[in-house]
Write a protein that binds this DNA or RNA. Structure first.
Lengths: 373, 373
DNA sequence: CTGAAAGCGCTTACAG
DNA sequence: CTGAAAGCGCTTACAG
């Protein structure tokens, strides 16, 4: 247990009189029966009023609501869940990357999910798919033990075959900004293929012919979309006009940095780098800076996702805007629809667009990279 | 509803035969009574085995556990919660900043909380304290409606007086990386005062005398700690040797950028800038770059928190490492202790240390800033 | 050490 | 349109 290293330690909180762990509040919580008796109706009627059952007269409704307000009655959600079919909780399930929550990519998705869920009266529960979590089938437990009504899956790839268990068990799951190949799961995804095409068109217009790509794991469906678009464009532009190489940057700054270094070592004639996400693009930017390469003077760099930081690096990053927050919102909305009875599977694609900033420019004249200044 | 703008639209998921919304799985879920009858004991015994009640014989325990395993029995958590005093869920409550979840600061805290909670068998629920949320006292509802056993509060300031409601209602709340002045709440916080002192000592050693600070809202306790340390050091070093000014950067890159510009406009002789968090430091870095000021040649810049990006900007940022992830872990651990009966209030301070990188250097010789090159 | 019973606080058919 | 009763699936005193 760490001790205050500084003299400016906050004053010790006083021992409080309140019974810290002696359960739900002081006094007897008011329950549905008190409301019923005070309103002179049955508990069934109170319940129906609370649930906006249309069978109830406006007058009884008023009468009950008045008492509810008077006594400050708040129905016990646990009891409601036990009696009804729903918990009104959805889970957000994600892989255990290093401090996942601190990632702006996941953050945007989750922000969208949370905001929409709150509006729809649902709570959201956070869950990490650690190895033992999966091994012990605790992802299924989320449903079997009645924690949740549905689950949103973010950050997974085709390798995460345990996701099948959801469909197999008849449980409601939604892929957010990804598609699970052959798993028959609902999804809402941004149009990464189009984003990559826009990047390639733009770079081509700027005169770039020697283009490198820093990609992430290709078992991620969206990444595959980008890689295929990259390759397809190279083929299409070929006849010798375009050339490209691909290196793995594993979605992180660190590996994006290393990938960029490798790329520039092997192909010093590279004039543009397309990174599969902004973090790898930042890594590439770092590599360029370290080598004294001017961006975009010597090499143009493009990212993808348009995370918050993309606008605040030097030079500001040209990138593909993928509406992550909106994807989170829509996915949540659709999942709740499913929970409420929607039968048709969900398969939505959100448009993407290029955001031009300072990290891209027309191709340099001489074909060989040389230090700036 | 957006339509696929690209040709590469994923194949439509097939309409599935499964009953999407017809409730918990197929077939009758196995309950505690089935286990009881198959194991030839009472349900009470099964329950006690499940809860590791020491009163149960090893042999009955075995017998029951075998059946539990055989039938793959998973106790219904809702029913458990209704009967017992606990939900085994804690909430993480935070203000509604722009896409809060995408913020690395909050992300680190939440990552720590989640990881520890999972290890302790607790689920975590995410909650945003929007204006109407607070107005309708829904933060109290979290307890009154039995959603949660305790709440972790992150990102709040002294202005958020609604936090008093927790202590007033006898509910378990924990401030994470902050202290609620006069609110009598448990807390776990990093030692920001010491961090700021280390920064000032270091800058002083480098010869800096004209130091500016970009701070955030002073009603945030931790920020006040830093500001006081900054001021105290200036006074201590005075007799004309040190001078400083403070501008508000509101915790964001944008305002940090603006604040740095204002600072450098008014005080062009500033040789070092201490920003209250890394985001504002990045804004300052951006401002310097835009003006052609070399960092650290013309001006040194220091941040605080050591978020992931701090190492990947140009130049890499010197900053104070505040162990946010650890703070989240410890806060979670302590909150669960409280839930389980701990009586003493929690008041922990975690040590911080300076991380030296490229954005700081010895003071420039001439006292006036001039464009680089 | 184990069992029978009451109860947690709601909702939902089923009567009236 | 409303009420009395059963039930959701557990845990917890209370007897034995």
């Amino acid at each position: 247990m760490p001790t205050p290293p500084s003299a400016k330690t906050p004053a010790k909180a006083k021992e409080t009189g309140r019974e810290a762990s002696s359960g739900p509040a002081k006094g007897k919580r008011v329950g549905i029966r008190e409301i019923a008796s005070k309103a002179e109706v049955s508990v069934a009627t109170v319940s129906m009023v609370l649930n906006n059952n249309p069978k109830i007269t406006a007058s009884t409704r008023q009468k009950v609501n008045r008492v509810v307000k008077e006594l400050g009655y708040r129905p016990n959600r646990i009891a409601q869940s036990l009696s009804s079919k729903y918990t009104n909780i959805i889970a957000v399930l994600m892989p255990t990357l290093r401090h996942t929550m601190a990632d702006p990519y996941f953050g945007e998705l989750i922000s969208g999910i949370c905001d929409k869920a709150a509006r729809l009266g649902h709570k959201v529960m956070l869950e990490h798919a650690k190895p033992d979590f999966v091994r012990e089938k605790r992802h299924v437990d989320l449903f079997d033990r009645r924690y949740i009504d549905g689950v949103m899956c973010i950050g997974f790839s085709d390798k995460h075959t345990f996701l099948r268990d959801f469909a197999d068990g008849g449980h409601l799951a939604m892929m957010v900004n990804n598609v699970a190949t052959d798993m028959d799961l609902d999804y809402v995804v941004c149009d990464y293929a189009s984003g990559a095409e826009q990047v390639m068109t733009y770079l081509s217009q700027l005169g770039h012919r020697k283009i490198g790509m820093i990609h992430g794991a290709p078992d991620v469906w969206t990444m595959r979309q980008m890689m295929e678009a990259f390759r397809a464009r190279l083929v299409q532009d070929s006849g010798g006009v375009a050339d490209g190489v691909m290196v793995d940057g594993r979605f992180t700054e660190e590996h994006g940095y290393a990938a960029a270094c490798r790329l520039l070592d092997k192909h010093p004639d590279t004039t543009a780098i397309f990174a599969g996400n902004d973090k790898m693009a930042l890594g590439a930017l770092h590599c360029a800076a370290e080598r004294g390469l001017r961006v975009p003077g010597d090499v143009s760099i493009v990212g993808s996702d348009n995370i918050q930081y993309a606008a605040f690096v030097n030079p500001a990053l040209t990138t593909v805007n993928t509406p992550l927050y909106d994807a989170g919102m829509l996915a949540c909305e659709r999942l709740v629809e499913r929970i409420r009875g929607r039968k048709e599977p969900v398969a939505e694609v959100l448009p993407t667009h290029l955001v031009l900033r300072q990290s891209t420019g027309i191709v340099r004249q001489n074909g060989v990279a040389e230090p700036a200044e």
